[in-house]
């Protein structure tokens, strides 16, 4: 419960900041894997099934992109958190996200314009 509250606050803070900065940065393609942040922070690889990822996303848990050793929180262009969108790609070996990247309060974010399996 505490974890969900922390995520919610983080997401709200990021969303507010994002709308003001999203057009100032160039488009990148970030390649990585879709993971559950919960699973990753508890020592696992973070990989979960598509159904589990969807269940976690629906319950407010963070589904994120891991590229190398970097974790990205991914947002839609309208500023909403894109965890549910990412969850559909949980079983893909690799995912590419085209968007603008930025570090906000020490967190890496992507404002996603496109996503697909790679």
């Amino acid at each position: 419960m505490k974890k969900i509250a922390v995520y919610s606050i983080l997401i709200a803070m990021l969303a507010a900041t994002l709308l003001t900065i999203q057009y100032a940065y160039a488009q990148d393609t970030i390649k990585g894997q879709v993971i559950s942040l919960d699973e990753y922070l508890t020592g696992g690889t973070g990989k979960v099934t598509k159904d589990k990822a969807k269940t976690l996303a629906d319950a407010g848990h963070a589904i994120v992109l891991k590229s190398g050793n970097t974790i990205y929180f991914v947002y839609n262009e309208d500023g909403s958190f894109a965890g549910k969108r990412l969850a559909s790609f949980a079983t893909a070996e690799n995912v590419g996200i085209v968007g603008k990247t930025k570090t906000v309060h020490g967190l890496n974010i992507i404002i996603m314009t496109m996503i697909d399996a790679m």
């Binding site: 390649k31 559909s88 790609f89 590419g96 697909d116 399996a117 790679m118």
Partner: peptide, 18 residues
């Protein structure tokens, strides 16, 4: 849609996508 619930796409040769 694909198995990832995305539109079914194949990308140009220069793309990093499939």
């Amino acid at each position: 849609l694909t198995v990832n619930d995305a539109p079914i796409r194949v990308y140009e040769t220069a793309s990093d996508f499939g």
